[in-house]
Nucleic acid binder design. Structure first.
Lengths: 188, 188
DNA sequence: ATCAGCATGTAAGGCGTTACATGATTCA
DNA sequence: TGAATCATGTAACGCCTTACATGCTGAT
């Protein structure tokens, strides 16, 4: 398996539940984990091909009687082993790139309205995401007894908790910028 | 300027305060914004060279009477304009890659001790980061009246608030996993 | 008949990381 | 003298994104 390509593990994780096509994989990434991980066809299909060559997944053609091209992938024992090893590996990279924070950090030389606007934009993004996460959480709560769902539930509550913290921070930050000490011409 | 290379903006942001060498830039990234943005020499030096060619920064040799090689960079008016445009651009990409959450999401098929361990590893990382951020915040509070420092302060409080939320989530998550509904053999 | 969604893939390019290579200075 | 830090850069590689290219299916 490619050394640092996390998309491989995402694919193995999804295939450990059921056989899927590349298209299905993309959909599941979008709907289930997109708030902390992204995927796209340009990385999924090549990864599937390479993983088939190295024996982590197997193709299962499924033409459904029509001539429609569709490739179902199935995880192999080697694939399962690779997944398990990764899950037990304690080295993790949690890599955050908040362009919003960059703009706030470097916005000190501009009028404060610029930073205020950047906070508002972020606030709106977070509000949207929070709505989606809450719906997702409600749906999960209906089936929380099922195997695996407690793990999905944990990631969703992680998302909700952080979004709510972001929103509280936005309120605090705007207040501080509007009324706080301003030490320079950049008053507003 | 390269279309999507954010390192350019980081460099311009830092140079808008003072002239710096590539080495200085790396140090300031490490000490000031590393919790939400990373940088390394392999991207900084090439970026500086390209930005000099396109007129966003200027070289200011400074040999300090010794023969020691050292290149100070200075932001130009074009560079300042590029920085200001970016700060006012409302399109932002906040790109998160939590490998920890991936492992939790896909850990449902394993024994719960695996997920518990992954949470503990995360918890320890966050605790370490939080300590650093708190020291950073204390230092900033001494000089909060100075221009720009309110912006730095905001990013630090963002970091502290999210870290504290992470830690609370860890406690909650561990409790849920240890005592919660387990719907399968994966009891622990 | 047309459009959205299903389905698979390739190509180009950009970005970033890691490792490598070099050498000066400062302090113990 | 040796180690840590200062200082600049290159090369290789890998990963990911975006755009492109193609064609089928099902619903309106």
């Amino acid at each position: 398996m490619a050394k640092d390509r996390k998309i491989d593990l995402v694919i193995l994780g999804l295939l450990s539940h059921e056989d899927l096509t590349g298209y299905d994989i993309k959909k599941q990434i979008d709907s289930g984990i997109s708030f902390f991980w992204k995927g796209n066809f340009g990385s999924i299909y090549p990864a599937l091909n390479e993983m088939e060559k190295s024996g982590l997944v197997k193709k299962k053609q499924d033409k459904k009687s029509s001539g429609r091209e569709k490739i179902l992938y199935h995880i192999t024992n080697d694939g399962k082993k690779a997944l398990q090893e990764w899950l037990r590996e304690e080295r993790v990279s949690n890599d955050l790139k908040y362009e919003t924070l960059l703009k706030i950090y470097f916005g000190g030389g501009e009028d404060r309205s610029v930073t205020l606007r950047n906070i508002e934009v972020f606030e709106n993004q977070v509000k949207e995401e929070l709505q989606i996460l809450k719906i997702y959480k409600e749906n999960l709560e209906k089936v929380i007894e099922e195997k695996d769902h407690i793990n999905y539930y944990l990631t969703v509550t992680f998302g909700i908790d952080t979004c709510e913290t972001y929103l509280k921070w936005c309120v605090k930050a705007k207040k501080l910028l509007r009324s706080g000490s301003d030490g320079s011409k950049n008053k507003r």
